[in-house]
Amino acid sequence: MKVKEIMTKDLTAAEPTMTVRELIELFYQSGLSSVPVVNEEGRIVGIISERDIIEGALPGYFEVLYGITDMNHLSQKLREIEHDRIEFYMTPEVIKIEEDEDDLTAADLMIRKNVKSLPVVNKDGILVGMLRRIDLLKDLL
């Protein structure tokens, strides 16, 4: 089965110029926890997640702490970066897959890279959907 046959055909994405506040609002309203970042043509220039935002507010947070001990500190740091562009916090190296690749290649990539979802691009590099672990599991049933 080709990736384009099983992927979620959704183009929800962020732009590099979007602010941290706008991104948090997008995550909150849509229920998503990460989105690809695309340029004006729809080419992927990065990926950003809730984790990237938390790490942006408190660098090293996940490495240092095992639990959240001071919400006020996180809140204050978040406010400091809320108007920043997300391009400063996104991961520019994106693990993605082409729509004509097969499901086995996609599954292998997800396992090797330990990612829950893969942005899917066409042969021109334009975002055409997302492949989630659940898409693969549903395909296997």
Partner: peptide, 17 residues
Amino acid sequence: ERRVRDEGITTSFIWVE
């Protein structure tokens, strides 16, 4: 969104409150 996607349509909706 779910029903539109289930039809095989590509979605590109903007979420609002």
